[in-house]
Amino acid sequence: MLEARLEQAQLLKKVVDAIKDLVQDCNFDCNDSGIALQAMDNSHVALVSMMLKAESFNPFRCDRNIAIGLNLVSLTKVLRAAQNEDILTLKAEDAPDSLNLTFESSDKDRISEYDLKLMDIDQEHLGIPDTDYSATISMPSAEFKRICTDLMAMSESVTIEAGKDGIKFACNGDIGNGSITLRTVQDVENKENNIEIALTEPVSLTFSLKYLVNFCKAQNLSKTVKLHISNEVPLLVEYAMEGGSYLRFYLAPKIGD
């Protein structure tokens, strides 16, 4: 059986909030290393890969592989009843037809308990190989969100160009064009403000801004975001959380002429 206790419900609330507009029905695949999810959006252009490591829970118990088939709209309805600071416990049997959730207020004067019906989801799984990306950019997640939102006002796609001079986000729209270039920033006092660019070769790829803006809903999970880019493969946008947990988004590029 699964028993997983989160010190603060907000972790799960934020994760589900960040992905629920991209994927609806998906399996939480549980085993002794944690809770994983991989799901593509309907158009097969974007993919969500979540890993909540056992270390992010206290305690975490799961002695065999359990697939928890969830509708994220339904899960959101239940999670809305949890306060951010509540202690959240997930429980499920080995072959579950429901997921038990309890929310306990931190001063323990209120315990809410919900059982959510599960679904049988036959999910398509993609094998994503470990990749050495040509460019890895680490930046404040708020900055990435601002760039995507600003450019989306002008165009539906953005070209991300990483070179030795920095990283450039450029768009071309009906009303004109625009670009934002970022250079390396080293803020010793506040490392969250750093912009780091690791480059093995220059890259330039075009992506749909609609999806990137959607990924930015994960901004609350982490103060920094990492973009991994190579000319030959989809973009990887990664939000790292405590305990080695992460939320990753993969986005297939658009191909120019």
Partner: peptide, 14 residues
């Protein structure tokens, strides 16, 4: 308008 590639063109199913 530039064509949108899908993920299966890069990653295998299964």
């Amino acid at each position: 308008q530039v064509p949108q590639i899908i993920l299966e063109q890069y990653y295998k199913s299964g």
